[in-house]
Write a protein that binds this DNA or RNA. Structure first.
Lengths: 107, 107
DNA sequence: CCAATCAATAACCATATGGTTATGATTTAT
DNA sequence: ATAAATCATAACCATATGGTTATTGATTGG
């Protein structure tokens, strides 16, 4: 079951939340504590943000004893791409930009 | 000058606003009235939404007498693609999906 | 066992946000 | 000239949202 696209866009709209997601993408699986140490907000707030990211399908949690590990979920960004692709025609003139993207990915 | 990416994500986070943008993309330039007639919210609200979309660089306005025409700005979505492309490695497994996107665009 | 650590929840708070109904400023039509 | 139309702004309002500090429920370490 795919998450509501609305939750996706909403989740990405907050900079703190995006920063957390980006950190998970870059550094891989992390515990809530580790994330909190770099988030600039309190632990409860980090938990809340993670909850929203999870609802949006952008992260997965893996409880392990007293700590919970989170990791980014690549699939979660799919609706964003779908949304973009929906306006293919409109995109004609940004084709080269996407080509760059593909080139960078093909390595 | 490119708009703040934060404004971009924020602008896209509201469904009504996204609907307005989508309508502009599909049906081309439209007057505020025309947009209001399909938005399901009041004219002032539509104006406000358009203001935010404009701030995000997603639309342009063209005042003409007593009415104002708005149209979608393809460039405005660039930061989104930039953001996505920034996580190229993370994207490996969604390559084929992007290939589809390109295929659909190449027509 | 007891203390400490960790993460989620609860209880709040201030402000942002989406929405409304006036109102105002201009332009067009009669 | 006057009335109607169009859009933006102002003044509000209710609720959502991001944030905080307790607090609780588990788990781990000494």
């Amino acid at each position: 079951m795919q998450a509501d696209p609305d939750d996706l866009f909403k989740a990405l709209s907050d900079p703190t939340r995006r920063a957390i997601l980006e950190r998970l993408i870059h550094n891989g699986e992390q515990t809530v504590r580790a994330l909190t140490d770099h988030a600039g907000v309190s632990q409860p707030m980090v938990s809340k943000h993670l909850g929203q990211l999870k609802l949006a399908g952008l992260v997965r949690d893996r409880p392990d004893g007293r700590q919970t590990h989170y990791r980014a979920e690549p699939q979660g960004l799919a609706p964003l791409i779908d949304w973009l692709s929906h306006y293919s025609a409109f995109w004609q003139d940004r084709f080269d930009h996407l080509e760059d993207l593909l080139k960078r990915m093909d390595q």
